[in-house]
Design a protein around this nucleic acid. Structure first.
Lengths: 357, 357
DNA sequence: GCGAACTACTAAACCGGTTTAAGCAACGGA
DNA sequence: TCCGTTGCTTAAACCGGTTTAGTAGTTCGC
C-alpha cells in the first residue's frame, strides 16, 4: 500500500529498519550511530527521495529558519534606489547556501513598528535586518523588547546590543569634496537627505567637515528627501540664490540626476558652470548627460556580510561589528573646474591642512 | 508556577476550563460551541495575550501561509526598475490583512529553476507569482509538475492551468505611436527589450502593429535588454544610421533616459530633432531634461490583484483571469513635431484608418 | 565474577496547533 | 419507557520532525 505524498521520516525509518529517532540522529550527524547503520539510513533516505519537512523542524526546533526585512519606504522611492535589490541579492547569496529564507515586508511608514511586531509574534523569522537607521531609532528598543536578534546596517548613534555593519559614508563624501576642492571650487553646496536618517545626517556632516578640513567657509545646504522631486526642488533653490554655488554634492544619485535636469532647464551648464556629484553609483549615473561623478558603494557585499553576521548571531555565536570595504569616488563628466570668477577676487589657495586622501 | 515563554493553546484551555480542541473550535468560529463557552474562551485568550503559533498551525494544516516570489534578474537591472518595489508593496497590501507573508528569492539567472524547486520542496510557500514571463516559459511546466499554485503576471502564450493577471501593454504602446503619428512623425523607431521576454516581444509587436495601423512603413528596430547600457548602445546605433528616425519608442524608461543622454552627446536635440517615449513612468521620468513622455502603468495595483487571485487559488476557489486597468500615455516634453524635412518630399497624410484612441 | 562505563539503539514525550471519534446529557417521538 | 437525535464537550490521534530517558549488549577494571 503506497501512501501518497512526500515520504516522511517514518518511511525512511521503516525502510532502513530502524526507529525514527535514529534517522534523525544519522541525518544530523550526531554521534552514537554505527557507521554501517548510518550508511544504511542515508541510502534509504536517498532512495526514497526524502528531505526533512521544514515545517516540522521549525515547530520542534522553535526556529523559523528565515530572516526578515521590513521596508518602510514609499514605493516610488524604493523603485529608484539601487541599494535594495543589490542588498537583497547579497543577502540571498548567503542565505540560500544555508537553507534559510528571506521574508520581506513592505509597509506604509506608519505601520513599520507593527511590521516588526508581527514578524516576531508569528515567529516567521529568527532575526531581522535594520535598514534606514534613524537618529534615536525607536526600533532598537522595540527589537530588544521583542527579543528579536538584529543586525543594523550602519552603526547606530547610541550603542546597542546588536552587531552593526560598519558602513562609513564619510570617506566617500570627503573624497567627493576633496575632488571638487582640487578642481578649484570654493562654494560647494550640499543637497542632503532627511536629517533624521542616519545616512542623511552622516553625509551632511561629512560634507561640512570636509569643507572645514579644506579651510573653506561653511557652504549652503538644503535638506531634501532623497527623491527626484526633492532633488529638483532643492537644486532650484540653490541656483536661485544670489551667490550661486559652483558645485553641489548630492546625498544620492537620484537627487543629483534630477539636479542635472534642473540645471539644464535653467541654462546652467554642467560641468562648465556647475559641478555635480552624486552618491550610490546607480546604473543610470553612467548614462546621463553629463555622466555623473559619484561615490560607488557595494550593497551586494553588504547584504552578504550582514546576512552572515545575522545567522551567526541567531546561532548564539558572539558577533562583532562587521567591517566593509570603503566606498570609492568615481570621477566622470559632471565635475570640472569652476568658471573663472567674473570679478577677480583673488585669495591665496586654501590655508592650513595640506593633505587630502 | 509560571511557565516562561508565550502562552499556548493549553494555557488558554486551562484558564477557560475546557479542552484544547474546544479552544481551537472557538477560535476558528466553528459551530458546535455554546455561545457562553465561546465567549469565556475568547476572553481567556485575550487575557493571556495568546495568539496561535503560526508554526504549529503550518505543520498541522500542511500550509505555509506564505507566498513566494523568485526574481532572476541581475541586481543592476532590478535597481533601476520601478516595477518591483511597487508590485511587492501591492502584494503586501493584500497579504498583510490576511496573515500571509511574502518569501522573496533573488537568484542568479542560472539558479531560477532551483529557486522554485526549493521553495516547493521546503514547503516554504503555498504558491508563487510568475514574473518576467518568457516565450515558451519552462517554468509553467515546472510549477505544474511541482504542484505549486501560481498566478502569472501577464498572460502566457500557451494556455495554462494558472490564472493570469491580464496586463496588456499594447494600448500603451499604441497610444505612444499614435501620439507621435499625430505630431507628424513618419520614421518611428523602436528600442526593444529582449524578444524572449513576453513584455519585450509584446511591446515590439504593438509598435509594429501601430505603424501598420497608421499606414506607415515598417520602422527600424533595435533589440536591446532593458538596461541603461543597452538603451544607450541601441540609441547610438539608430542615430548613426543614414536615415535617422525622427522618433524612438523605447520599451522602458531606463533605456529611454539613457537614450536622451546619447542624443544630447551627439548633438541631437530632443524633442527638436528627435522625439522620445518611454514605458513605465518611473519617478525620474518627470525629472530628466527634457521630461519624458511615457506610458504609466500601475504595478502596485497589479500586486494587490495578483495576490488576491493567488490566495483564492490556494484556498481552492476557482479563479478566473484578472483584468487590470489600462495603461495611460503621459505626454511630457520629450515629444514634439518632427523637424521640417530638408528636402520637401510631400506625400498625402496617412490613408485608411481614421480613428485613434 | 560483578558493577561501571560505553555503544547502539528504541520508545515515548514533545513542539502547538487541528481534526476525528467518542461520550454524555437533554430532548422529542412512539 | 425506551430509542434516536441533537448539542456540547472531551480525549486522543495526527502533522513530522527533535530530544530525552531508558534498555539491551559489550567491554573494562579490579
Amino acid at each position: 500500500m503506497t501512501r501518497p505524498g512526500r515520504p516522511t521520516i517514518r518511511d525512511v525509518a521503516r525502510a532502513a529498519g530502524v526507529s525514527k529517532g535514529l534517522v534523525s540522529f544519522a541525518l544530523n550527524g550526531r554521534p552514537g550511530v554505527a557507521d554501517e547503520t548510518r550508511e544504511r539510513i542515508l541510502t534509504a533516505a536517498r532512495a526514497l527521495g526524502w528531505e526533512p519537512s521544514h515545517r516540522a523542524r521549525a515547530l520542534s526546533a522553535s526556529r523559523a529558519f528565515a530572516v526578515g526585512l521590513v521596508i518602510a519606504r514609499p514605493p516610488e522611492l524604493l523603485g529608484a534606489d539601487p541599494f535594495f535589490p543589490a542588498f537583497i541579492a547579497g543577502v540571498e547569496r548567503t542565505l540560500s547556501d544555508r537553507g534559510q529564507a528571506l521574508v520581506l515586508q513592505v509597509v506604509p511608514e506608519s505601520a513599520e513598528e507593527a511590521g516588526y511586531r508581527k514578524l516576531a509574534a508569528d515567529g516567521r523569522v529568527d532575526g531581522v535586518f535594520l535598514l534606514d537607521l534613524r537618529v534615536d531609532d525607536p526600533r532598537l528598543a522595540l527589537l530588544e523588547q521583542l527579543g528579536l536578534p538584529a543586525v543594523t546596517i550602519a552603526r547606530p548613534m547610541a550603542p546597542t546590543r546588536w552587531p552593526a555593519l560598519l558602513i562609513d559614508d564619510r570617506p566617500g563624501v570627503a573624497a567627493a569634496v576633496a575632488h571638487l576642492v582640487e578642481l578649484g571650487h570654493r562654494r560647494i553646496a550640499h543637497v542632503a537627505g532627511p536629517d533624521h536618517f542616519l545616512h542623511g545626517r552622516v553625509r551632511r556632516l561629512a560634507w561640512e567637515r570636509a569643507l572645514v578640513d579644506a579651510g573653506l567657509p561653511a557652504g549652503p545646504c538644503v535638506a531634501s528627501d532623497f527623491s527626484a522631486a526633492g532633488g529638483a526642488q532643492a537644486t532650484r533653490e540653490l541656483l536661485d540664490r544670489a551667490e550661486r554655488p559652483t558645485a553641489i554634492v548630492y546625498a544620492n544619485d537620484l537627487m543629483a540626476i534630477a539636479g542635472l535636469a534642473v540645471a539644464r532647464e535653467l541654462g546652467v551648464d554642467v560641468p562648465g558652470q556647475l559641478s555635480v556629484t552624486g552618491f550610490d553609483d546607480a546604473e543610470l549615473a553612467g548614462y546621463v548627460s553629463p555622466t555623473l561623478t559619484t561615490v560607488r558603494t557595494d550593497p551586494f557585499e553588504w547584504g552578504r556580510a550582514a546576512a552572515r553576521a545575522l545567522l551567526e548571531l541567531i546561532d548564539g555565536e558572539p558577533v562583532a561589528d562587521v567591517p566593509t570595504p570603503p566606498a570609492r569616488l568615481v570621477v566622470r563628466a559632471s565635475t570640472a573646474p569652476p568658471p573663472a570668477p567674473p570679478a577677480q577676487r583673488r585669495r591665496p589657495p586654501a590655508p592650513s591642512r595640506s593633505e587630502q586622501t
